[in-house]
Structures are given as C-alpha cells and as structure tokens.
Design a protein around this nucleic acid. Sequence first.
DNA 1: ATGGCATGACAATCATGA
Length: 268
Amino acid sequence: MTLFAVPSLRLATWNVNSLKVRLPHLLAWLHARTVDIVCLQETKLADESFPVQDLLDAGYRCHFAGQKTYNGVAILLRVASVGVADAVIPALPDFDDSQKRLIALTVEGMRIVCGYFPNGQAVGSEKYAYKLQWIKALTQWLRGEISSHDRLALLGDFNIAPEARDVHDPVLWEGQILCSDAEREGFRGLLALGLRDAFRLFEQPERSFTWWDYRELAFRRKMGLRIDHILLSAALAGLCTGCEIDVELRRQERPSDHAPVVATLTSP
DNA sequence: ATGGCATGACAATCATGA
C-alpha cells in the first residue's frame, strides 16, 4: 500500500531571511535536494513580487501570504510528486493580525501548516505578549485541525528553543527570549495536542542547531539555537524515517542565518 | 560596553531580527 503518489516524501522548513536575496540559494537547493513540500518563512515580499515563475520553472507550485519588508510565509509543492492543494488559508483564523505569519493547505491527504512565530524581542515586552497570544491562538486553532485531520504537520520558525540541549550555552540563555519558561510551555502545549518533534524521533548529534547569529562568527564557533521545527501528528510520525538539519546552507556565500530542517515520510 | 551583522525602506540612518 502506498499512501502518497511516490514512495517517500520530504517535508522541509527554511527561514530564508528575504526570498529576494535567497532565491538563487533556494533554486540551487531545490535542484540538489529533492524536497517535495517546502515551507518558507521571512520571505519579506509582497504577493505581487513573489517569484512564481522562477519556482514554476524549477518544478514547484507556490502558495504564499506575504507583505513588504517583514514576515511572509510560503509553501512550495513539487509538481512531479504531489498533487494540487486545497483548503488553503493565508492566515490564522479568528486572530486579528496584520503580520503575515501563517499559511496552511491540504495536499496528499495531509494538512500542512507553515508558521513564522513572532520573535518576541525581550521577555516582558509588548512583542513578547503578542508572541504568547499568537502561540495560544495557534494552539486553539490546531486543536480543531487535528481533530479533523489525522495527518497533520506543523513546520516553521518557532522562535523557541524547546530544551537546554537545543541551546549552545543554556546558562547564558536561561530565561532569555526564545528560551523563557512561557515560550517553552507554549511549545509543550503544541506537543500536548498529540504532535511529535520529528527531529527528536531519531538519535541526533550533540549541538544540533538551526540558527546562528550573523555576528561574532557564531556559526564557526557553533554558537546556535534549534528554533526551527517540524512537528508531526501521530499518524505522520509513524511514517517518519528521518529528520536532518541541512547545515551546509549556512556555510554558503551570503547565507540565511537559518538552516533548513528536512523530514522524510515513507509509505509502509 | 546592550554593540557586533544582515535586510529593507530610504536616501542618512533606522526598525527588526533572535
């Protein structure tokens, strides 16, 4: 029995930090690495500026919700391996938000949710309160989505390092933004919906991170955080045969400060 | 020392990221 049109599917998430700047990196990566469903964050592009044709030429259909300068999310679907999406929503329902941080769609029987969680700036700030509200609204909405979709994946830049082992220096970051108790509680609240952290389904190298500050040679010094995640419902976690961080992309010329995370789902 | 670097909007600096 096959669940998908192809024996296995790769799901990926990558905060590109400007799709305009990173389009050549993205196209090269799509060409080199067969990924079927790609969630992007921080595209920083208005919808009319989205490079639809470049991506179609590369073999991907695009769904996106963007704005100028900040935020912006997209889901790319590889034409050769997955069908046409439906039930596309360009925002979190029932949450009044001028910031483009969520897009979701259904494809191959899976509900795919791409999120760019707020950064939060500093614990106790207004942006921090907004972050916690956003996470709460997401969690409430997902509760309903999961009840109607056995196969659901939440991918994105969560801006949360869930545990001490996800932080290069847990003592330095203790209680700081991305690592505070309330943020980690929010992450656990998502797991409590029945989602699994795909990366932690497998043995992983120590000091595995997805983001490194541009400053202070942070990447070279392995000073990073694991804040980009793929969470899978039980039905999809059971099909997951691997999950890796594509660290190579952080080594390139003019890189994004985030590296992609890729999970493989294999039909039984 | 609250900076550093990168991006975008804008036209010299400034907001934001994490």
